[in-house]
Amino acid sequence: MTRAGLNLDRLAQVGAELADEVGFGQVTPSALARHVGVKVQSLYAHVANAQELKTRICLLALEEMADRAADAVAGRSGRDALAALTAVYRDYARQHPGRYQASRFQLDSQTAASSAAVRHSQMMRAVLRGYGLPEPEQTHAVRLLGAVLHGFTDLELAGSYAHSSPDPGESWTWTIDSLDRLLRTWTTA
């Protein structure tokens, strides 16, 4: 990449690619400067600091996942929508492990409120409305789904299921079926 090609969007894209190669935690302005073949001072003409760089990579990942999720859940409901939405996250994590990790970077509240994180929440809640969950149960269910989804995916990415039977895909299907049964029979407190 030439210096003329540097801008914040391009640095976020290259940073996301680097995150997939070496891990999100290893992406720093210095590492990115080495990767693109410039001095770190040249990078600071486009990005203020490591926090801004990581935020931009997070926002890129959230946008990519939201676009995929919106396409996946369109026209679906119930278990079908649940399976489609959760598959997007699992597949994205396997295809882009660094970006997936970046998507969980802690954003400040103002940035989060104007990011694709809002679309993720809206899609999750739309799926859950198909199960007839009122508040506050809907919020509990969002947290439950997030915990199961991220927990399973993190363990799978770490290789925890690599040498055991059954295949993780079977466990994933079983998990989605179990979540669907739970959501269909959810009782309010």
Rank of each mutant, 00 (worst) to 15 (best):
V148K: 03
M1G: 11
L18H: 01
R90S: 10
P166Y: 00
Q122R: 13
A69C: 04
G159Y: 09
L85I: 02
R99Y: 00
R76K: 15
S114M: 06
G25Q: 02
S30W: 07
A81R: 05
S164V: 14
S178P: 09
A87C: 14
R143N: 07
L8Q: 15
T28I: 02
M65Q: 15
I176T: 02
A19Q: 06
K54Q: 15
V36K: 09
S115H: 11
D177W: 06
L59G: 09
H46C: 05
A19W: 07
L85C: 07
R90K: 10
H140W: 14
R56A: 13
S160E: 12
A72G: 11
A19C: 10
R184E: 15
A83I: 05
R56Y: 01
Q138G: 04
A116Q: 11
D154F: 01
T185R: 13
T111K: 11
D177L: 01
Q110R: 15
T153N: 08
L157F: 05
T188C: 12
R79D: 09
Y89V: 00
H96I: 07
F105V: 02
V47P: 01
H163D: 14
A112W: 00
L179G: 04
G159E: 10
R99F: 03
T28L: 01
W172M: 08
M1T: 12
R10Y: 14
R184G: 12
P168I: 05
A66D: 11
L157I: 03
Q41R: 10
H120C: 05
G132S: 10
D91C: 08
G132I: 06
L59R: 06
H163A: 14
E63W: 02
L182T: 08
A45G: 12
M65N: 08
E21I: 06
L43Y: 10
A102S: 07
Q110T: 15
R34C: 00
Q106S: 14
D20R: 08
